[in-house]
Amino acid sequence: MTGTGRAGVGWWLLILPAFALLLAFYIAPIVQVLAISVTDPEPGLGNYERIFTSGAVQRVILTTLRICAITTVLALLLGYAIAYAITLASPRARGWWVLAVLVPLWISVLVRAFAWVTLLRRQGLVNNTLMNAGMISEPLPLVWNEFGIIVGMVHYMVPFAVLPMLASMREIDPRLLAAARGLGATRFEVFRRVFLPLSMPGIIAAGVLVFIFSLGFYITPAILGGGKTLMVAEWISLQILDLIRWGLGTMMATMLVVAILVTLAVFSRVVDLRRIFGAGG
């Protein structure tokens, strides 16, 4: 609720210091860095032209979009199943479930990425087990490729998919499900016609959240991709830190920011994002 008149001005004054701080130390530097994309190596839109002319740039963008799309879909599927199980669980079991979902969030993303490397590499647990069982004769290429990146990213993203969907499912009145069965719907029909449509806002919110997070992912793809499969964030770091091509790197960074804002803008028309990201409403 916004106040009106004098009271409204008072509220704005209250957030003014925070706003000034944010502007001076966060937004201004970002804008300054992003501005390099139109000044380096020479003023103009030369860097942006590369999106249409450079095969390497296009490949990075397409790879990123593909990995993010697959990660989002898989994280949503897994997350939906988990959120559904939590919703139907008894209150006591629910607490343990939520804890199990949250614990990975408290473990460093670096640790988790290396854990996956240990599991998935040529002499890793998975390959060794499969070889010993005689199911494969050659180790499978499970890591340092797109597959490895997706495994790591899905693992990281599942909690972020579960939480908005769980919030949305918890809002569904259980009496509606009972009513649907009483009216003759089988368990599957109840899910398809009542539960799924009512949990849709949560699915969309989780999808937006996971997709946006995935776009800028750095550590997991850098470690599990082994430098062979490049996503946007790693590519930016490569341009700026190794190749000292600031213009190209900041151009891609600008594109990343734009992509995120566009995604948010599109979905804010479909669903009420403020409600999804926790502002009461």
Partner: peptide, 20 residues
Amino acid sequence: LPPEKRNFGMVFQGYALFPH
């Protein structure tokens, strides 16, 4: 018999209309 096989109409407390 499970509820969906009984063919009983039911009006729930608070009505339980499908909001969507």
